[in-house]
Amino acid sequence: MVIQKRKSYTSLNNVYFLTATIHKWRPLLDENDNKGVIVDYLKKLSEEKLISVYGFVLMPNHFHLIWSQDKMNGKETPQGSLLKYTAHTFLKQLKLENRSFLYEVISGNKKHEIWQRDSLSIEIYSRKVAKQKLAYIHSNPVSGKWQLAKDYLDYHFSSARFYEYAQDDFGFLHNLFTVFDGE
């Protein structure tokens, strides 16, 4: 069986739906502190005007993000910076807890892998697709096996309340539909 890798290409200033998954689907993001690492770094990148975040949800072993990468972070893309920073932060904590062995890999250029290599980015090109992707990420915590909250609006690590109540609990959210004004 041949496993085909997803290939995602992004460009600056376009809006994308990103999915990033923890290596081997391990529940590293079960812990709110680890979710906080992601939220804090998204806020930092946003404050530095490197990204615009339109929607997100953080799940136990992956996250979905609707965003645009607005400027490079030095020589790195904001996505590269986000995944690298969070991986280093998580690995440091895992080493302190003697759990880093769970993320060991056999590779010539690294000893551990926190994020799977096949992060998927899909360009959002219309209001219709934007609505569909937002509905998907906001319902993720209460769908299927997850049941992380009784109601999707009760799940903290999501942009759902921003769209329902105009409540930005994170300080970095932008309304996705302003991107498609005039359509």
Rank of each mutant, 00 (worst) to 15 (best):
I51W: 02
E113S: 00
I66S: 11
Y85D: 12
D70S: 01
M59C: 03
I106F: 11
N61M: 13
K131C: 02
S81M: 09
S68I: 03
R117F: 13
W115I: 04
V37I: 15
K150L: 10
L28S: 01
Y85C: 14
L45K: 00
I114E: 02
A130I: 08
S121K: 13
D33S: 10
F90V: 03
L42M: 06
K110S: 07
F101C: 03
F101E: 09
L102Y: 03
K150M: 14
S81E: 14
V39K: 10
S121H: 15
R117V: 06
F101A: 11
I124Q: 12
K110W: 08
S143L: 15
L134C: 13
Y136T: 06
V142K: 11
S139H: 14
D118G: 14
R99C: 09
L94Q: 03
Y103R: 00
W115G: 07
L50D: 05
V142M: 07
D118P: 04
W115V: 05
I114A: 06
A87N: 07
V129N: 12
S52H: 11
Q147L: 12
A149Y: 06
G80H: 08
T86S: 15
F101L: 11
L42V: 07
L148C: 02
I51K: 01
K92I: 03
E123K: 15
R99I: 05
M72P: 00
T86D: 09
Y136G: 00
D30E: 07
P60K: 04
V142W: 08
K43C: 11
Y54T: 03
S68H: 08
W115M: 04
L45D: 00
S52I: 04
E76H: 15
D30M: 02
K128H: 13
S107I: 03
L58F: 06
L28K: 00
F101P: 01
L45R: 04
